[in-house]
Amino acid sequence: MTTQPTKRKVRVRHVKHASATNINQKSLVKAVIQNDTGEWVRPATGDKFYIDESPKFPSVVFEIKTDVPPPYQWKWTIVWDAQVSSLRESAKRGKKLRTFSQSGSFTSNEKSWEANLNDMIVGGKLSVQVAAGATEFRRTVFVLGKNPAKENVVSFIATMPNTLGFDKVVEQESHFKNFINADNEPVVAGDRGYGLTQMTNPAPSYEQIWNWKENIKVGVKLFQEKQSEAKDAFGHHPYTDDQLMRETFTRWNGGTYYQWNSETKQLERKNVLCDPTQGNIGWNMDNPSNAGRTADQLHERDKGQYSQMKAGQSKEHPWTYTGMCYVDHIFGN
């Protein structure tokens, strides 16, 4: 009689409770269900690791438990969904704007690997897969971020040239927050502005969003370009540091602040009245439809159109977005 070989049992662990649904409706914690496989020494499914204030990528060591001889095929993927946030910690995140991701693979004779994501400092859902012969392993953890101290951001800005007043921009844009403390993910504005500087154009990269120093660097580069444009616009006309900051800030947000009066031989603020209830909305008072009216009167006339954004601007409602009002808001006037 021929004896049938006994099939070797392969135990597969399907972990479906790595992250439970949060019953607190005001929480920013996301409900995530993972399917991890294989025997792992470390880390545990759903563990959280934090990019520190330096910023420095955390030490995350993945180690499998197997008797299968090497080599082992490793593959990693990190994914982050950029969802709109408010600077208010209690607010829920909104719609997803886009998904960022990076991945890599390698062969190793080692059963463990300390995560190195191509030397990048990025966060999100980090999944690692290992193939050891016919055995498959998978483990998923989360990489999150911690905010730097305000004084450290200011000190870092001070190491770069031509950054006069850039700290005021960061204060206005993000209150020196690169991450929402409630979920330790980056600040995301509805206009696709990210992190400390709320950069939109040029659009920041994955690392320029998660690495606060890179976020500052890309913001400073744009700020320096706007400052250079301001100086060119002033030409041979005399200007103060305050005027340079106002002109640079306005160009950062859109438009120009000053015009040269050939009669008085001075730089003069353009004839724009700002809506004190808004950050960057105002009216060109040279427009006959606006002339002679107060900010309260113009606000009552146009406030119903603000939610339509540019589509709400018309001959009957000639309000506009202007960097001048953004600047006046920064300077408190």
Rank of each mutant, 00 (worst) to 15 (best):
V327R: 11
V272D: 01
V153K: 03
L267W: 15
G123F: 11
K265T: 11
V169Q: 07
K75W: 08
C325I: 07
S85Q: 06
T66G: 09
G124M: 12
L267D: 09
P318H: 07
V32M: 10
P70T: 04
K265E: 13
V41C: 08
R139I: 00
M285K: 07
Y239S: 10
V79T: 15
G123S: 13
D302G: 01
A158R: 03
F166N: 03
V154F: 04
E151K: 03
F156A: 05
F142Y: 14
K217Y: 04
D81C: 08
D232H: 05
P71I: 06
K310V: 13
M199G: 07
T320Y: 04
T197S: 06
T256W: 12
K177H: 10
F179A: 03
I51K: 11
F156D: 03
N22I: 12
E225L: 05
T256E: 14
K65M: 11
K231C: 05
V141G: 09
S174I: 07
V141F: 07
D232E: 07
W210L: 02
E229S: 12
N284V: 01
F249Y: 12
Q34E: 09
T77V: 13
F331P: 12
G219C: 06
L267Y: 10
P71W: 08
N24V: 12
D52V: 07
T3W: 01
A131H: 05
E39K: 15
G190I: 05
F62S: 05
N147V: 00
N290F: 07
E214G: 00
M309E: 15
Q243Y: 13
K213M: 00
E225R: 02
F156L: 06
Q172C: 12
T264P: 13
K221P: 01
R301A: 08
H17F: 15
V128F: 01
K96W: 05
